[in-house]
């Protein structure tokens, strides 16, 4: 029995070296997640006097409590190691990352949502009256069935009879596929906020004059020297509001500060160019001038004649009476011929 006593004493001595396994405390323990949450208030006095010791002691007690619980679970011995199978964790940890945003809608989905269009479920197989058999909507045997159906194609009324309608159909199909692919890529780019490079006009047949002008302006500046040496047509106007898509165009044009006198000379130069514009041969102007000259001439002639005639009739157009009318009706023709001559004269000068 001494041996037993010895052993017991020895073990009791050894146990005295270690701290007690028993801790009387209530804390939340989730064994599955190996998590202990101590919601008891801290002893502020002890924390302030010796924070390290206090925290160490507190942590040891709490860890001890958790280990006590772990030891209560059924244990196994696998290859000299004692193993515990942990239950499922109860505590749900918050996400480390934000919740993923929902996928942004494609352009069609957006449109369908706005219009309230709901996708209808269609069966994969449909009965074809022409072929007298079930045809799949897509996939295996679809193309073969379509080929069988289109063994002959009608030539539309105003179409060129020599045109290959089959080739046309194939091309239209490939065009549709390409368009769909492009739209798919556009949707991806839109969802990822990627800027797509511009490539001129997608459809020159239906683009407006404004779009065409914008395209011309952008294309002109798309040279190695940013369009500096591109020639201009006489009445060409630059598209406005295309600074963002024009290479080399700065967002805001700022004129360099100049002194008042410099600005004045610049302005005067512009005025000179405005005023020195070569006057066009304006038909109407020429007609007006010519008519004016003729009238003046006639009135002067009249003045010359006047002393012989009645003095009371004043120089308004109503003064003449019936006799003058035939003269009047002839005049425009005369004027025009002479005018033409005059215009030619101007041209030759």
């Amino acid at each position: 029995m001494d041996v037993v006593k010895d052993v017991l004493e020895k073990s009791a001595k050894e146990a005295d070296k270690y701290k007690s396994v028993e801790v009387n405390k209530l804390i939340d323990i989730d064994v599955g997640a190996l998590l202990a949450i101590d919601s008891n208030p801290l002893d502020s006095k002890a924390l302030r006097s010796s924070p390290n010791d206090y925290l160490l002691k507190l942590t040891r007690d709490n860890v001890q409590l958790m280990y006590n619980q772990i030891w209560e679970l059924p244990t196994e011995r696998i290859e000299e190691a004692i193993v515990v199978k942990l239950p499922k964790p109860k505590y749900s940890l918050p996400r480390a990352k934000p919740v993923p945003k929902p996928r942004s809608l494609t352009k069609w989905e957006q449109f369908a949502k706005a219009k309230g269009i709901v996708k209808k479920k269609r069966t994969k197989l449909t009965w074809d009256d022409q072929l007298k058999k079930w045809i799949p909507l897509y996939g295996f045997k679809r193309a073969a069935a379509q080929k069988e159906k289109d063994w002959v194609l009608e030539v539309p009324q105003n179409a060129n009879p020599m045109e290959d309608q089959f080739a046309k159909k194939v091309e239209a199909k490939s065009e549709r596929v390409a368009k769909n692919e492009l739209q798919r890529l556009h949707n991806i780019a839109k969802a990822k906020h990627v800027k797509i490079p511009r490539f001129g006009l997608t459809n020159p047949d239906v683009s407006s004059a404004k779009e065409l002008q914008a395209a011309v302006t952008v294309a002109k500046s798309s040279t190695a020297s940013l369009g500096k040496f591109q020639e201009k047509l006489p009445k060409e106007k630059e598209a406005r509001g295309v600074g963002a898509i024009t290479p080399g165009a700065t967002r805001k044009r700022k004129l360099p500060p100049v002194s008042g006198s410099d600005e004045k000379t610049q302005n005067l130069n512009i005025v000179e160019t405005v005023l020195n514009k070569r006057p066009k041969i304006d038909m109407e102007k020429a007609v007006a001038r010519h008519m004016n000259d003729e009238q003046l001439q006639r009135s002067e002639e009249k003045k010359g004649e006047r002393p012989k005639r009645l003095r009371k009739s004043h120089g308004s157009s109503t003064g003449g009476g019936g006799r003058k009318k035939p003269k009047n009706s002839n005049r425009p023709r005369k004027v025009l011929y002479s005018l033409e001559l005059r215009v030619y004269f101007y041209l030759f000068i």
Binding site: G260, S261, E263, N267, L268, I270, V271, V274, L275
Partner: peptide
């Protein structure tokens, strides 16, 4: 500036110059 002067020239012709060249200082 060109558009402005073209418009002004329609009303006052070559007198646009007088608006810029004034004896009483610089106007802009």
């Amino acid at each position: 500036t060109k558009i402005l002067f073209e418009k002004l020239a329609k009303y006052i012709g070559p007198n646009v110059k007088l608006l810029i060249e004034r004896p009483d200082g610089i106007y802009c």
